[in-house]
């Protein structure tokens, strides 16, 4: 049984750290894992996508086949729409409500409308990260908010965060908890 997680957003939002946390948590939980990303130019503010595949059996393709995604974690609302061909009706979508705008950025209402008919949780990760004490912890807020749909134990995720974040450990743990709460109290 493979659990497929697609993390999308904009270069510089901490997407690679988020996927590193998932893969290391998987290792702690004795799961197989493959993650793959497009970077190189991605740190220059371009669209970034990371594929994370977790399983208790063999994983072959590093790229998730379209339509197979179980959880879509979108760090940015427009980027969530860009990868809708990867999701199905069952996909759980966590989306950060804070846009990173550029020329011709669509109306926020139309973005939210398109996500409306789906199993989507819209999270103001910027506000929650601020509440946690560090706006840079938005990625961890979003991990917390999606954790209910991940095959990873929350305690293991928290242990992994402690191990992997270099600064502001307490703020990151608080951010994770606030993310969890955002799912509990929609």
């Amino acid at each position: 049984m493979i659990s497929d997680i697609l993390i999308v957003g904009v270069g510089g939002q901490g997407i690679i750290l988020a996927s590193d946390i998932l893969s290391n948590a998987a290792l702690r939980q004795d799961l197989n894992v493959k993650t793959t990303e497009t970077h190189g130019m991605a740190q220059r503010g371009g669209s970034v996508v990371t594929h994370v595949r977790l399983s208790n059996s063999d994983i072959y393709s590093p790229l998730i086949p379209k339509g197979n995604v179980d959880v879509l974690i979108a760090f940015e609302p427009l980027e969530a729409l860009r990868y809708l061909d990867y999701v199905s009706k069952e996909t759980f979508i966590v989306v950060n409500s804070n846009p990173i705008k550029m020329h011709d950025y669509p109306d926020m209402d139309s973005i939210l409308e398109e996500l409306g008919g789906r199993n989507a949780l819209v999270v103001d990760a910027l506000e929650l990260a601020g509440e946690a004490g560090n706006v840079l912890t938005q990625n961890i807020v979003l991990l917390g908010a999606s954790s209910s749909h991940l095959p990873l134990k929350r305690e293991i995720l928290k242990e992994t965060i402690k191990q992997m974040v270099k600064r502001a450990v307490d703020e990151n743990l608080k951010a994770f908890q606030l993310g969890v709460k955002a799912w509990n109290v929609p």
Partner: peptide, 18 residues
């Protein structure tokens, strides 16, 4: 698997100078 993408025309987000 044929999946509908977004109905909105999405602007590209190419890498740019910081």
């Amino acid at each position: 698997v044929i999946n509908q993408g977004s109905g909105i025309k999405l602007p590209q987000r190419p890498p740019v100078m910081c």
